[in-house]
Design a binder for these strands. Structure first.
Lengths: 335, 335
DNA sequence: GTGAAAGCGCTAACAA
DNA sequence: TTGTTAGCGCTTTCAC
């Protein structure tokens, strides 16, 4: 009798322990209604065989897969990696694993990844949707979806996000109060929901204050940051403040100003969206709007599991407050 | 006839298209040997129903799950989140999804997570093992494993890592050449493989140079960094260089020295392991040993897929070279 | 080219 | 307390 080559199945355990399949099933599901003798026998067989129940077979029977999906633009981004960590932690608390997918903010990729997740019959999905996210991909998907950081375009899907508009407003107002007159707004992809809200917050404030609306909204990397900023560094179009809306750009702006010899905050103030690890260590420390990343992610995950437990989600939108962290780069008084 | 409530199955498609199950199966697997007429009918039914094949059922039949596991100490850590991104990218190229698990460097958690992955019948596993990783958890697992960043303790599992010893040696030698006499080595968990190798590199150099071996190897956070460094900031035990071995500690050390009024590099030089985003932006820029994170992760993933394709892994260990990035904090000449 | 039917590993209903 | 058995959704012979 040749032992079957592959991984042991429940029947192998049953045979080795000299019991029926159902008994093994009972044992691996809590061991209720099983005599001590057989329980021990089965446990020993499991141990000896290194048996692990096949989840695929279980979920075929209609059980939960104990797996949720997470789709983010990138895990390399500190915002989303912190979120991923928090979500995975909540999931772990529910005995659930995380299937990670990366969309790069491209709806085609997003769709492809979601299709892949649907095939795996995830119990639920947490998603930071791309701008062009298409709801039809969820047709007949059969699981709850919770968005975070951004809402699902044109769809009433539960979402947890922060108050981007208020945050940008607060930061801009702070600059205005500090006496800045020409505030340049720097942003990445102008299509991005978060960018749009933040730019709007900035705009409403400068408009109300009668200041010029100066925005460069398509800064992608250091090179384009140089290109975008240079015209504003001297002459009559010279600015006296920068409001950076995108994490990665902030540092570029800081370096460019410094390299151009423009003293911060004396000549040009800086305020930025998203706190970062060394914001308080740079010279001068950078004034930022801080989002409760972990709080947002955790809340989204909790909402998903509520939906899983209770059957339905009650809350449609949770908007978290952000915090303006006053630091010297604003040139403002801490009040 | 009530339409079944849940997600559509292959049979639903078959019935709607008026064909047999096998035909639908053929269509979703490439559509070979199917008449154009039925192919169209089936595709339409799939579209209308929003049908997605159930992977669980497929893998029950013995097919690959097209899913690999990734176990890291933390995804919030920039090193591991960059690695995760790279690995997910390679996986995507192979039509494979990533099941993400976090061990927090605790072998119990690691074991629990791996068990969970085994149940999901992953095709393979990429792992940054904890110090106490127990090989027995893979008993009968039936899939290839590749480690990265650290080898599996006492086990001959394929691994991709960087030359921690050489990197630490190079950094320390650089400090020695710059004339430093009292070099303090700061490290986190002394049990960690990478820490041990780096400390050894440091030690061998200071010993050979006849300099004192000064090490604080259990620095966890900013508070403990303060506690560890303070005794060395003044008096006769005063140091003239710090070699920080752990990412998170480096910035703490930098701040502590700065706050203590010890000029860098004039009074105290700094060299550190692992490059970080703002290392070149701080004042002074921090001299670091840079690991090819993405290269390491990608290579590990590629090795796993090679093992999956070819059946076996050939390489047992890949050691990547690191690079010493000269920056002003060392007080050295750039050569 | 096509469909019927067996079986992958498991759970749950039922019988004993 | 037990074991037997019928599927879960799919792929894969094997006839037609």
């Amino acid at each position: 009798m040749k032992p079957k080559r592959s991984v042991p199945a429940l029947m192998d355990v049953a045979r080795r322990a000299g019991v029926g399949a159902a008994t093994v099933s009972r044992v691996i599901n809590g061991g209720q209604n099983v005599s001590a003798r057989r329980l021990a026998a089965v446990q020993q067989a499991i141990e000896e065989l290194g048996y692990h129940p096949n989840q695929a077979a279980r979920s075929l029977k209609g059980a939960r897969t104990k797996t949720i999906g997470l789709v983010v633009p990138s895990v390399a981004d500190p915002f989303f990696s912190a979120a991923a960590e928090a979500i995975q932690e909540v999931a772990r608390g529910h005995g659930t694993l995380l299937l990670l997918a990366v969309s790069e903010n491209q709806s085609a990729r997003e769709q492809e990844q979601v299709a892949s997740l649907i095939q795996r019959r995830i119990d639920g999905l947490i998603l930071a949707p791309s701008d062009g996210a298409d709801f039809s991909m969820f047709k007949h998907a059969g699981f709850p979806v919770v968005c975070f950081d951004r809402p699902f375009p044109g769809q009433d899907i539960p979402v947890v996000l922060s108050d981007n508009y208020a945050g940008a407003k607060a930061a801009t107002e702070h600059l205005v109060k500090a006496g800045r007159k020409r505030i340049l707004c720097l942003s990445g992809d102008p299509q991005l929901f978060t960018s749009k809200r933040r730019v709007k917050g900035y705009r409403d404030v400068v408009r109300a204050a009668g200041l010029p609306y100066l925005a460069e909204v398509s800064v992608q990397d250091h090179e384009s940051a140089v290109a975008a900023l240079t015209p504003y560094l001297s002459g009559r179009s010279r600015i006296d403040a920068v409001f950076s809306i995108k994490n990665a750009i902030t540092v570029s702006a800081y370096k460019i100003l410094r390299d151009a010899g423009l003293e911060v905050p004396k000549m040009v103030a800086i305020a930025a969206y998203d706190d970062f690890e060394l914001a308080d260590t740079l010279d001068p420390p950078i004034c930022v709007v801080r989002q409760p990343v972990v709080g947002i992610a955790r809340r989204a995950a909790e909402m998903l599991f509520e939906a899983l437990d209770r059957g339905q989600v009650q809350t449609k939108m949770v908007k978290m407050e952000v915090e303006l962290i006053h630091r010297a780069s604003c040139g403002g008084h801490s009040r």
